[in-house]
Design a protein around this nucleic acid. Structure first.
Lengths: 353, 353
DNA sequence: TTCTTTTGTGCAATCGATAGCATGAAAATG
DNA sequence: CATTTTCATGCTATCGATTGCACAAAAGAA
């Protein structure tokens, strides 16, 4: 029935050694289109043929070549991922959720960038070269370049944990509200000298959180909180903590917000080293809800970002736009949840904000 | 000269709206092959034509469709990346290096998996569907499945920080030597009651480090070190630290190796909480050299893995095999470097091991 | 001036999968 | 029994880029 591989004429395996629709078609004695339809369960193909081809495909270890499929289908199934500095566990956690959730939707992530530093041009171009269906960006300055490229080529773009400026939609935690919530709680617990340690002033996350915090403080009739920091790193938090510890006691704040958990952890480390009791002398709070901040030495009181939901909504936004649904760009804000650690004195029951 | 877009016959832009060799060819009035050659700087194309086409391509924002190129070229330029649990900063750091270095070689990373848990079948298949040119794996159990798939389909495979069992090459730190080095130093500093906190016993990293440590201890005529742990997490290290702290002082070890920094950090946190002085009462050392372990509250003495070099050698191995050079599978061991923190009493000068 | 060589381009096939249209056979209808 | 439908499949073009081969025109050799 089947002519077993005479080396000459029509060997059943193509160049790569992998089975293809063509090689399967030859073995099955049908046309390639039939193979394609059979494998995609097109109802037009008779059950017998379908099963025979399925069996052959299984035996040959056939895997469709998505590159080829994308060529005709126009969809690569790839989502470009641009990550921020992953020394911040937040990004690592975000990435993990993104991989899982993308896979669940049948998408794969093309990892374009990870780290601080600006994205290279060659990297940004890969976005187009691989015809990504969409792009997920979590990073600060560097997004600018990638965003421009996406805009110019109509690649749907969603920023997570960043608010878009020129182009693209965004999903973010309600940073302003988170800052305000913490300020409110601290104030109600009796704190009166508040300070805030900020991250990179060019990032929306940092400025919004600090602003939400400050507004609430000012609204309570207190002076605008002292501001320290300027860079989103543990080292910066640590330095800020040292500065705070070095202040004369009467000037020293009695509550400090690190606009990110990483900063707050740095502050905590410095305060502990300086022998300042937390939360008795100073309350410290953060925002993000990263894993390490919950661990014993920190046990940070923080507002956790709804990471799972943020990724989910982010992918939703992408999906809509990938379908070609012409939608306006939108910004989705999700509320974070308070995690009560032991790094701050707070009123007994949280108030809904 | 140019007929400006009469909507009917041969519009210069294809379906996607993006420029293609065909659309450029039409505008330039040449054949697609000429465009292709011009853009790839084929010397056969005359300078004038080359420049004209280059200008057109620039103006049109042309980007080659790598999917299409891969189809004929047989190389996708994609490297599959399978990451371990990224709550361990080690993996995050590894990823960052991998992205950068891969990009420098013109490769992009297809992020297939990140996290603990086994890799899903659908994910492992993506490896084949996207015709990755090679695969980089850093993860434990889950690699098994992916490795099998790679083997069956002749996809070059390199494990980083893991030693291969059935298939594939590997790059790893010399874990055994690292464990031995630390044991040696601790012994020479006068420690006599050693303990080790291990990670997942099925991972080569954990067992080799513990074994290198234990051998050296036994060789010194001391009893085999007490072993705790069993899972590579901060929580496990913390628990082990609590156990250690709870021991009666005469049974309590005077030096502890956490086979990974994460574990050692957990141990440190527990000891500090129990009020046990480090390194005066107990020395604590780790292996990995992750960022957080160097920070103030820990300042861990550790053997840092040469991450940059490991990734580089890993990509080298892939590159060789991707070129089709038939090479035997190999395991490359790189020596780590001692980082002297303040978590352990060590002899003044390090001995070369 | 004629024949050979070089040079620059075009034609057409290819990679692997998909989808529109065509076709032959079987089934249903009159 | 003739005719219209239905059904299962095959043929072929397509996606975008690359490449072997053919073929003119220009340059060199005889």
């Amino acid at each position: 029935m089947k002519e077993l591989s005479s080396p000459g004429p029509a060997a059943a395996l193509p160049r790569s050694g992998r089975a293809t629709v063509a090689s399967l078609a030859r073995k099955a004695g049908v046309a390639t289109s039939t193979v394609s339809r059979a494998l995609r369960n097109d109802p037009r193909i008779s059950p017998e043929v379908r099963e025979r081809i399925a069996a052959l495909a299984m035996a040959a270890g056939y895997t469709p070549n998505i590159l080829a499929r994308s060529l005709v289908g126009g969809q690569s199934g790839l989502i470009g991922l641009v990550l921020g500095p992953v020394e911040n566990p937040f990004y690592a956690e975000l990435m993990q959720k993104a991989v899982t959730q993308a896979a669940a939707r049948g998408w794969r992530l093309l990892l374009l960038h990870a780290g601080p530093g600006p994205i290279e041009d060659a990297t940004a171009e890969a976005l187009l070269q691989y015809r990504v269906d969409g792009c997920l960006i979590t990073s600060a300055e560097l997004s600018s370049r990638a965003a421009a490229i996406c805009a110019a080529n109509k690649v749907p773009l969603v920023m997570v944990n960043r608010v878009a400026w020129e182009h693209g939609s965004a999903v973010s935690c309600d940073n302003h509200a988170a800052g305000a919530l913490l300020a409110d709680l601290l104030l109600r617990a009796g704190h009166r000298r508040l300070a805030v340690v900020t991250g990179n002033p060019t990032t929306s996350t940092s400025t919004e959180r600090a602003e939400g915090f400050a507004r609430q403080v000012v609204a309570a009739g207190l002076p605008r909180p002292r501001s320290l920091g300027g860079d989103n790193s543990h080292a910066m938090g640590y330095r800020a903590g040292q500065e705070i510890a070095a202040l004369p006691p009467e000037e020293r704040p009695d509550a400090v917000l690190g606009v990110s958990d990483i900063l707050a952890m740095g502050v905590l480390d410095a305060l502990r080293e300086a022998g300042i009791a937390v939360p008795d002398a100073i309350s410290v709070v953060g925002i993000d809800g990263i894993g390490p901040a919950r661990r014993p030495p920190y046990n940070l009181t923080t507002v956790a970002q709804p990471l799972e939901a943020m990724v989910e909504r982010g992918l939703d936004l992408l999906q809509d736009r990938m379908k070609g649904v012409p939608r306006a760009e939108e910004v989705v804000l999700l509320r974070g949840t308070l995690i009560r650690g032991r790094s701050a004195r707070l009123p007994e029951e949280a108030a809904g904000a």
